[in-house]
């Protein structure tokens, strides 16, 4: 009996060790890469550059929050669990709606609401397909992504539609306490989502629903409603981001849908920065800033930007292989 006990104990130790190793490894890799950039990439550490990277990452980060919330509420088994492939296309559509309404002379607050509403409506469509029609999330969100990007193209007729307003230029150029408006948006939004996910009863329940739906159901939680929420919230993030995109470019442009892959990469990479290897807001923030710094560092070093997506892909594979290794070492 003693042997059994000590064996389970040592296997837990080994597993905890492996987990710590992976997580520390992730932080160490992050640190080493940043340090390398700081030493070799001229201007990397200048406050101008740092702020620039943060601003560039705002859009990616908030979209990745949407994806993260979907992962939290529906589990990280992307094949059978949940995923929101529509989030980026959705942002593109919301942006097109926003710009078009502004140009039609709608008052700004109404146009903002309409953009966010558009995002949430597409999110609702995702939820409907997954919860009511029981479509595989991968497929459901794929179809919605097609619809969203098609609608975006239709509204914009494949053109860049310019727009300018005081509100948008404040968002673009405004500063407060030496920090740009976009950075403030990121800070406030992060605090908001982090509270919702990590410091509210709601978040605990959403994690439970995503972590083990049967257990959540047995605890009396409404699983379907939580899944709806995940997708609608992801749509909200998309709508919200679309306003930032428009303000940054003073226009609605095509190609927002291309953000999907970096968004996925950030949300998946983020899991490695959490103690439980689950999606977290903090992890996603670190991961998407990391993705941003990586691109920036390469640029400053004069490395071709063509490397960026390959490095992201390799990182995803590395992270997933390592986490599955860390989980597997729990020893049969």
């Amino acid at each position: 009996m003693d042997t059994t006990v000590s064996d389970t104990k040592s296997s837990i130790d080994r597993r905890a060790l492996a987990a710590v190793f992976v997580r520390l490894g992730a932080f160490a890799a992050l640190g080493i890469i940043l340090l390398y950039f700081a030493i070799y990439a001229r201007g990397f550490t200048s406050s101008f550059n740092l702020q620039n990277v943060v601003e560039q990452s705002v859009i990616l980060t908030i979209l990745a929050y949407g994806m993260t919330v979907v992962f939290i509420g529906t589990g990280t088994d992307v094949q059978k669990g949940g995923i929101d492939l529509a989030v980026a296309a959705n942002a593109g559509l919301s942006g097109a709606v926003f710009v078009t309404l502004l140009n039609l002379g709608w008052p700004e607050p109404l146009a903002v609401l309409a953009a966010i509403f558009t995002g949430m409506a597409m999110g609702f469509l995702n939820g409907l397909a997954v919860v009511v029609f029981r479509m595989i999330p991968l497929l459901a969100t794929l179809a919605v992504m097609n619809i969203a990007s098609g609608l975006e193209l239709t509204i914009t007729e494949n053109n860049v539609i310019g727009v300018s307003s005081e509100f948008l230029s404040t968002l673009q150029f405004g500063r407060f306490l030496g920090i740009s408006a976009l950075a403030w948006v990121l800070i406030v939004f992060t605090i908001f989502v982090a509270f919702l996910m990590h410091y509210s009863p709601f978040g605990v329940r959403l994690y439970a629903v995503g972590g083990f739906p049967e257990a959540a159901r047995a605890a009396g939680l409404n699983v379907g409603r939580n899944i709806y929420f995940s997708y609608i919230f992801s749509g909200f993030c998309a709508g919200f981001t679309s306003i930032l995109i428009v303000s940054r470019l003073s226009a609605s442009t095509l190609g927002t849908g291309l953000l999907l892959l970096p968004v996925l990469a950030a949300a998946l990479l983020g899991t490695v920065f959490s103690r439980r290897f689950v999606p977290t807001i903090g992890g996603t923030l670190i991961a998407s800033l990391f993705v941003g710094f990586l691109a920036n560092g390469f640029q400053l070093l004069g490395v071709s930007s063509y490397w960026v997506s390959g490095v992201q892909g390799a990182l995803i594979l590395l992270v997933v292989a390592l986490t599955s290794f860390a989980k597997k070492s729990e020893g049969a």
Binding site: P201, V204, Y207, A208, G211, F212, A215, A218, A219
Partner: peptide
Amino acid sequence: LLVPTATASEAVFLNNEPR
């Protein structure tokens, strides 16, 4: 029937969390 990635205290108070 417990959520494997929840902490012990979260599991005890799931759906009945102090706030």
